[in-house]
Design a protein around this nucleic acid. Sequence first.
DNA 1: TTATATTTGCAACATAATTGCATTAAAATG
DNA 2: CATTTTAATGCAATTATGTTGCAAATATAA
Lengths: 145, 145
Amino acid sequence: MENKTARFEKLLVKNGLKRTAPRLQVLEILSGRDSATSQPYLEQVMGKNADRVTLYRVLQAFEEKGIIHKVLDQQGTANYAICSDGCSAHEHHDEHVHFNCDNCHKIYCLDTVKIPALKVPAGFKVEHLNLIATGLCASCSDKVN
Amino acid sequence: MENKTARFEKLLVKNGLKRTAPRLQVLEILSGRDSATSQPYLEQVMGKNADRVTLYRVLQAFEEKGIIHKVLDQQGTANYAICSDGCSAHEHHDEHVHFNCDNCHKIYCLDTVKIPALKVPAGFKVEHLNLIATGLCASCSDKVN
DNA sequence: TTATATTTGCAACATAATTGCATTAAAATG
DNA sequence: CATTTTAATGCAATTATGTTGCAAATATAA
């Protein structure tokens, strides 16, 4: 925990990715937030440090390697969060619930809340589940009251 | 059930919408399908009968009135399905599971499968739930075997 | 230090979505 | 039934979003 950057560098190397500025910056930004981060927000924060195309490619590479996972919010916008340790490139365990706050629009990964098993009609074969709850997050419902 | 068009016309009037060709055509198309219909597909089927902008506006109006509901698939593309009777403009009961087939990419509204109640961390207030399952639909898993 | 392989940034392109406005069409009115 | 009012459509222009090819730059391996 002492040197965050060193940790990120190791993470990149472990996944066969070169240690480049834009990649490190994306990891910095994502790790500094308590909720998933939208692509547009990332773009804005990165500013002129990286081209828009580079950001797309960084995010895509990270997702393929299982470093981050993508959540679409209710508007269909991509949001990204750093994966917890259980994730790996091909078997990606992100089947926890995501919470999309109607007020601040943050997306929280509720890692502790798992998606309950589901009984589907005969013939259907479920591979993955994706549950997004919307409403007010803890912080926003505080403010309202 | 005898006159589908008459039924659609009544539906429009009931919601304060004028009975126009593009609107009726959208209802026709949606009602003739067993799964939710993607915006691009609708656009293609409507062809030159309606401008793309009109389609956007028709869909938006229908959604606001609770005539149809929107489901985003795993790519973030909007898909639309006619609401069951329980739906109304402001309290929209579409909290059934949607199934996105990885093979044929259809989206099924599994009206019979309800989303189980969820235990979320303290402070979070859930308003709506949105569960998308991916995998193989009944028809596609038949073909594979 | 040099060679190599990857990654980046730019430019061009493609696609998707939104807005303003003039025209057209539907329903309300007398 | 003619006319007025209101809503909806289509077009053009604009903006946003995502993709591709390629030359230049940079990180790592040799």
